[in-house]
């Protein structure tokens, strides 16, 4: 093994220029920025930032009335809703005419989630200190996940392209976001492969492109449709939680009389 792969991280820039921890730090900072920017943007629409409401509902909601449920039940509701609506794409998938569309969305979503997990695991295993036999599977898995993102984004883009005609009018932002996703996934997946294949220079370019696309993604996402999806998704979950805890949507009272 070690003979075959002298060192898989050789293509990375020297640690003194851009240590691995720096990259992780950068990503973390960008992620925090993205959350903050999303918060600001959603608040600018004069609506509440529902991810926070959902969190507080799960953690602190006391509820009222006989159907009031405890934390466990609330968490289970939230978990179920997350699993079905978000991870299984049941709500969105039900209305996507073509399966390929759902598949594209699913690949991007799952790719992202798994990539995040793999990155965390990869960070916990010191990439330069640990033996390659431990790093390699995680790394390869990460590549697969990035490939999933790239594939998903490609499906979404190709679907858009194939349907493109004079009448089509979809937002430029959607095109841009999907393109960023494609580049992000493809560059991440190919960097390792190029390195394994011995194309170090290519791998380095791919790596830099990957870093750049990650930066762009985090800077751009709060101002894209994703913010709306996060808002709406959590709004729907909040409604589910409310109805599950017996509060439900109250029937609109009669219009004010005597006006």
């Amino acid at each position: 093994m070690e003979a075959m792969f002298p060192s898989i991280f050789y293509y990375m820039p020297p640690g003194n220029i851009l240590p691995h921890q720096y990259i992780v730090g950068l990503v973390l900072i960008l992620a925090i920025f993205a959350v903050l920017a999303s918060y600001m943007r959603i608040r600018s629409w004069k609506v509440p930032f529902t991810p926070a409401s959902v969190l507080s509902a799960v953690l602190f909601s006391k509820g009222s009335g006989g159907k009031n449920q405890g934390f466990g039940a609330r968490a289970s509701t939230a978990g179920k809703s997350t699993f079905h609506d978000i991870f299984l794409l049941e709500r969105a998938g039900a209305w996507c005419e073509e399966r390929i569309h759902t598949l594209g969305r699913g690949l991007v979503l799952w790719g992202f989630v798994l990539l995040a997990l793999a990155t965390v695991v990869g960070f916990l295993i010191d990439p330069l200190g640990a033996p390659d036999s431990a790093v390699l599977p995680v790394m390869l898995l990460g590549d697969v996940f990035q490939g999933m993102i790239a594939l998903g984004a490609a499906i979404l883009l190709l679907r858009r392209l194939s349907r493109h005609n004079l009448r089509i009018s979809t937002d430029r932002n959607t095109w841009a976001l999907q393109l960023v996703l494609l580049v992000l996934g493809a560059s991440g997946a190919t960097a390792d492969l190029l390195s394994i294949g011995g194309f170090l220079a290519g791998a380095q370019v791919a790596f830099l492109v990957n870093i750049a696309s990650i930066v762009i993604f985090f800077l751009y996402a709060p101002f894209s449709e994703l913010t709306f999806l996060v808002w709406k998704g959590s709004l729907l979950m909040q409604e589910t939680l409310q109805s599950e805890s017996g509060k439900g949507r109250e029937i609109a009272p009669q219009p004010q009389l005597g006006k």
Binding site: A92, A94, W95, R163, I168, S169, T170, D171, F228, K232
Partner: peptide
């Protein structure tokens, strides 16, 4: 909130209204 965001409407709209976006 029932809008699934599939975007078919925006592809079908002859006037470029982008109903999917309008629903958002």
């Amino acid at each position: 909130y029932l809008c699934s965001g599939c975007g078919l409407c925006s592809a079908a709209c002859p006037k470029g209204v982008d109903p999917q976006g309008v629903m958002i």
